[in-house]
Design a protein around this nucleic acid. Structure first.
Lengths: 241, 241
DNA sequence: CGTTATCTTGACTGCTGTCAAGTTATGTGG
DNA sequence: CCACATAACTTGACAGCAGTCAAGATAACG
């Protein structure tokens, strides 16, 4: 490509956006350079460390965000404290509930994360102006719905062993999407979080991880670092054929 | 309203659509009379009796539908036969997976139902032409996502008693939306289906219904007809405060 | 009225939760 | 770098809730 033309092209894109992941797969990829410049004027890029809340259940949502790095957990809590994680968001996922004033759930950083957030009214307007943007968000919503329904099968019908294997398989394929047959990764969630995701207690999660280790399906170092020598075998243990 | 004008207005709407529920809350409400006439030329209105499949898991989706009457259950099945119902669709819900060639789940009539179905390409084109239509479908998808995530909390963290109470409360508020404090309705699902929705066995569902009866929270006639004298009490039994 | 499907109830088993103790990581100040 | 404190995780013993298997009751249907 002509270097001069490339420079001209890049000069139309805000500096902070140039190397941003969300500009390709994420919402910003659907914006014109003019829209990107405008959105960027009002957006805030910030680090959120593990455990910090991004939005609370029932809170008014006045900003949307893109996940740039790390993992965000979406959860719901009952009044007596019982909790269920209902989804995980990875880069470059969009974060925020369109068409509704209040958030229906809590969003919290599971690992140290980086997010880029922008005022709601500006994006709402851009959605109305840009069909491609609405389409992307619609498409992501339907993908999340498919994921949620897959997880309902896991929660309702699988054994503890299959649940833990399903979780590990999901993480392996999300974090390390290249490798087809084996995978290595750091767990983004604590045992407590895994329990809240799978509808199990910490103890049961721990016991099932130990069993998978003894079966040779996974190896674990330092509690968080997992290696899966054979993804198909893990997938079978997850009950998926 | 002037009778003559009303006649002129109605003459622009296909006869079969005039008294159709889906024309207001459903997708057709977002269409111009011209679009409605065109869509109607290609649409088929048909009865589907209880237990009949509308689309199968993994099948190509070549038609979308609106639910006009009755209840449609959406379910997923594992290879060994374990099944999970992941959603119920009532009139005037839209049925079909946008932006994806294959259905990710099975749709089956839970009760005797009536649906209006139309070719996929025609609606896809209308969505591209009509922002309001895309917006409605997007909005319904997000509502279904909220519902799915609420149900994940039920599946993962509630007891059998709370699950059954949650199910009855959900049905009561969907079928009989008028009455604020008490409700009477016919269950649209068999005990087996309720089990598949709640991640329980038939026997456990039956036992919990018996318990709720003995507690005076519900009364049941002929197995299917339920009366809830105090919805708040049922909601408390469901674990929602 | 008989047959079949659906639902209920009972007895018992087993998986997962609860409670408790022990072990391994992580982080901090000396 | 080490000692200590704290958090996170693992393991064990036991209990209880929901599943399994079996029989009986009720409703639906021809």
């Amino acid at each position: 490509m002509d270097v001069a033309r490339k420079d001209i092209h890049n000069s139309q894109i805000p500096v902070v956006c140039r190397s941003c992941e969300a500009r390709h797969g994420g919402v910003c990829g659907a914006l014109s350079s003019g829209q990107l410049i405008e959105l960027n004027r009002h957006s805030v890029r910030r680090e959120v460390s593990a455990g910090c809340e991004i939005v609370g259940q029932g809170e008014a949502v006045c900003r949307y965000s893109s996940v740039l790095r790390g993992v965000v957990k979406l959860s719901k809590m009952m009044s007596d404290g019982r909790q269920q994680i209902v989804g995980l968001q990875f880069s470059p996922d969009f974060l925020g509930r369109l068409f509704l004033h209040e958030s229906t759930l809590t969003a919290e950083a599971a690992t140290d994360t980086e997010i880029c957030s922008f005022p709601r009214p500006i994006l709402d307007r851009m959605i109305a102006e840009t069909p491609e943007l609405g389409h992307r968000l619609h498409s992501q919503a339907l993908q999340e719905l498919d994921d949620a329904r897959d997880w309902m099968l896991t929660l309702g019908r699988k054994t503890a062993q299959e649940k833990v294997a399903s979780f590990l398989y999901m993480i392996a394929t999300h974090i390390d999407p290249d490798s087809a047959d084996c995978a290595t990764f750091d767990l983004p969630l604590s045992r407590a979080d895994i329990g809240d995701f799978l509808g199990l207690t910490i103890e049961t999660v721990s016991r099932q991880i130990t069993k998978l280790r003894k079966l040779g399906i996974i190896t674990v170092e330092n509690n968080r670092h997992v290696t899966v020598p054979d993804l198909d075998r893990l997938n079978t243990a997850a009950g998926n054929d």
